[in-house]
């Protein structure tokens, strides 16, 4: 029967043959679970008992949960501190690294190395750095120059930036490499023309380099924002004695989801939180694309 098909028709058969297993995968492992998560978010279920339909109860509970609002603020704090800092730092480093002649490859390697590490391992290294005297590196250094101790991970105000620091650090290498690729794609002639016109270096940066880097900047902003909104590994490992502590000061949404689902087994409530996470990611990405594209 196959032999009687035309060349076109044969290709259609092949195409669907190639797509068969992947389509099953995407339906079963991606679409069905997405749908299921939304469904569970309207139910109350502790894994053992019956699944009870509760309508929007989980969502109204969430909106009246002070912990959720604390977590919501933390999640956006990770985004609003992490994204601009990593964007500016990686751009400055990439800009100068691009102009470096001597030992260029070696320097690039130094900056890229942290990207190859495991978040869990590095969270523990940084956790050690933050310990009080006489253990922690930072406090030892501070006390050696006569500055009083800082209780990084035990302070409700400093713990969040302290947990964020290794996440920013580990992502810098990737962003620097992407920025350097963007910088090299800008035709040299633009710079030469500007130089002939006697334009200052600062103007070249603002009028030529940054506008031409727009696609790269959009990519890095959206990509790193999604990363910071989903922060988990660092927080979980740096605060294992009281995950998300002290007093929920470092708890991001993903950690709240994890605890609600797999410590409290409150599946419906956790599913509602995942739907909120999904909406946050969607809205933040769309807003960023809109703002950055128009400029």
């Amino acid at each position: 029967m196959y032999d009687r098909l035309t060349v076109r028709q044969k290709q259609v058969v092949w195409a669907w043959g190639f797509l068969a297993i992947p389509i099953v995968f995407y339906v079963v492992i991606r679409f069905y679970p997405t749908f299921n998560a939304m469904l569970i978010s309207f139910q109350e279920w502790n894994l053992l008992g019956d699944r009870l339909w509760t309508g929007l109860d989980n969502y109204s509970k969430l909106l009246n949960d002070p912990v959720f609002w604390k977590v919501f603020r933390n999640t956006f704090a990770y985004l609003l501190i992490g994204t601009p800092i990593s964007l500016v730092v990686s751009f400055v480093i990439a800009f100068h690294l691009d102009r470096l002649r001597f030992m260029h490859g070696f320097m690039r390697m130094l900056y890229f190395l942290p990207f190859m590490t495991t978040a869990v391992a590095m969270a523990w290294v940084w956790r050690w750095f933050y310990q009080p005297v006489p253990i922690g590196l930072f406090n030892n250094f501070l006390s050696s120059i006569g500055i009083p101790q800082v209780t990084f991970l035990r302070s409700t105000s400093l713990a969040l930036p302290a947990v964020l620091a290794p996440a920013v650090w580990a992502g810098l290498g990737f962003q620097i490499i992407i920025f350097m690729a963007g910088l090299r794609a800008i035709p040299r002639t633009y710079y030469e023309a500007a130089r002939i016109d006697g334009v200052s270096g600062w103007t070249i940066l603002w009028e030529i380099t940054i506008p031409l880097l727009k696609p790269t900047i959009i990519f890095i902003v959206v990509f790193s924002s999604i990363g910071f909104l989903r922060i988990f590994d660092h927080v979980y490992n740096m605060t294992t004695n009281d995950p998300g502590g002290p007093l929920n000061a470092t708890k991001p949404l993903v950690l709240m989801i994890y605890q609600t689902a797999f410590n409290d087994f409150n599946m419906g409530y956790a599913a509602a939180q995942t739907v909120v996470l999904f909406l946050i990611l969607l809205i933040v990405s769309l807003v960023q694309l809109r703002i950055l594209r128009d400029r």
């Binding site: 988990f232 993903v254 689902a261 956790a270 995942t274 739907v275 996470l277 999904f278 990611l281």
Partner: peptide
């Protein structure tokens, strides 16, 4: 667009 964290429960 779907974050992994939304799928872990299902």
């Amino acid at each position: 667009m779907i974050p992994t964290e939304m799928l872990v429960i299902p």
